[in-house]
């Protein structure tokens, strides 16, 4: 369960998103909101990427009190990943695999599903936005996460890869009990994913729909 308490995220004194008390139970959840509503900022706060006021904990592990334990359990894939042109996807994924305590077999399995080994040793500067996106999505599944945040996982990737994302989310949820926070401007195909709740980010706050 994700617990968010007295949470406020501001940039230059301007509040972006805040909530006093939010409990998100285990399962797959869809977070919705228009562009600029603060979805990504909320996700980045939950992933521990940006500082904020308040407390966020996953299954009792407080992000600020136990930064390493928390980050072993919570992974994230960004909506619009950006990597240095001179590094390869393989460089980046190898680093994240090691940091997230994943295995090479796991990396090869995930990469194989998205056909990334066909290009992952080339520099990122040669990648299309879809190829970059696949690297980012793979990175979110590495290690042994209990919560995976996928920010706009369906944009820029091809139809076959969209199918792989559905397949992976379903597999990780059903077989490993991994929970998901997803955001998408497109409708998720509900018969493909057992989405438990939807949350709306609006008027600088987040609430269950």
């Amino acid at each position: 369960m994700l617990k968010v308490q007295n949470f406020t995220k501001s940039y230059s004194g301007q509040k972006i998103i805040a909530t006093d008390d939010l409990l998100i139970p285990d399962g797959i959840h869809w977070v919705r909101g228009v562009n600029g509503s603060g979805k990504s900022t909320f996700f980045r706060s939950v992933a521990g990427i940006v500082p904020y006021e308040g407390h966020i904990s996953w299954n009792g592990i407080d992000q600020k009190a136990h930064p390493i334990d928390y980050r072993l359990k919570v992974n994230m894939s960004e909506a619009e990943p950006l990597y240095p042109q001179f590094l390869s996807g393989y460089d980046i994924l190898s680093f994240i695999t090691k940091a997230k305590q994943g295995t090479r077999a796991q990396l090869l399995d995930l990469a194989g599903r998205f056909d990334t080994p066909a290009y992952w040793k080339n520099p990122c500067g040669t990648y299309s936005s879809g190829m970059l996106k696949k690297v980012a999505i793979i990175s979110a599944f590495l290690g042994n996460p209990e919560l995976i945040i996928l920010d706009e996982p369906l944009i820029t990737i091809d139809v076959r890869s969209v199918g792989v994302v559905y397949e992976l989310v379903k597999e990780f949820y059903e077989e490993k009990g991994v929970n998901f926070l997803l955001s998408s401007h497109q409708d998720f195909i509900f018969e493909n994913l057992p989405i438990l709740h939807s949350y709306q980010v609006e008027n600088q706050t987040i609430f269950k729909v």
Binding site: A47, P67, N75, M76, A99, K100, S139
Partner: peptide
């Protein structure tokens, strides 16, 4: 600037 631009994800890494 380099880390802010390309590697904000560092903050999500469970390393000491």
């Amino acid at each position: 600037f380099f880390e802010r631009m390309y590697f904000e994800i560092y903050k999500n890494m469970p390393v000491s």
